[in-house]
Amino acid sequence: MSGFTPDLELNQNEIVKQVERRYERIVGISFTISLLASIALGVVFWQGGQTQAEGALLFVVLGGLGFGIVAWGKYLVPQGPYVQEREELRSPADEKQAFVESLERGESLLLRRSFLVKLLGGAVGAFGIITLFPFIRSLGPQPKKMLYVTNWKKGSHLVRPDGSKVHVSELEVGGVLTVFPEGHAGGAISQTILIRPAFQDIVTKPGRETWGPQGYLAYSKVCTHAGCPVGLYQELTQQLLCPCHQSLFDVLSGANPVFGPAPRPLPQLPLAVDSKGYLIAQSGYNEPIGPGFWERA
């Protein structure tokens, strides 16, 4: 410990005592502080607990113990350095030889009945595979068409998260809303983002002449990159940004990816207006929504 200048008039024995007492004192103080903090911690718990007080007092309790113990181990017991021989890791050659002989003796005894060995292997293997099968098959259903379909069907009403239908008059130009097919409000797969960039019908791509009635556009809200909800609508630049990995989609050109890692446009939901003025889907999505997978061409 620096800054310590012992009285040089003392004889060596005295100095030893003096130095050791100093270290003992440091360790003792450390343990005492820890003890007192433990009591304080008990009081805090008794009073109902308070996170910051608990953390700070735990720090003092544990830190006092740790500092004291380390200081004890560092300043009050011999440090060496001590030396120790490393034993040879490798076994002596005759040991190895004996081991190989033992192994081979047993092996030859077993292999004498090699047919039984094979049969044993086959029986154990079969048991293993057979028991694995129900385990794996019970974990979940086969994917089948799961990744190709959503709950959107021809004529599905667009509803808000609370289940209320969306009327064509309800969204401001420049407004945005998350919608679902009626009966499936809140669904993770069918979630769709409804945007109204203009008063007029919008054509985003050839073949989609009727998909955007009265300036409404609807895209799958599941990012084609890693599946996050593309909930970030930049109204002035007419772009959708995915908050997870910053893929940027151009709303007016069919949600084409213009920046970032997304490989495909967001699928567009063809919209129509029913006789009462509520928004409906002309059909479901015409392609699988969300990120790619092996079976998808």
Binding site: L8, I15, V19, R22, Y23, K74, Y75, L76, P78
Partner: peptide, 11 residues
């Protein structure tokens, strides 16, 4: 202990 060594050196 280190104290002894230190004390020895100081002394």
């Amino acid at each position: 202990s280190p104290a002894v060594v230190l004390a020895e050196e100081i002394g």
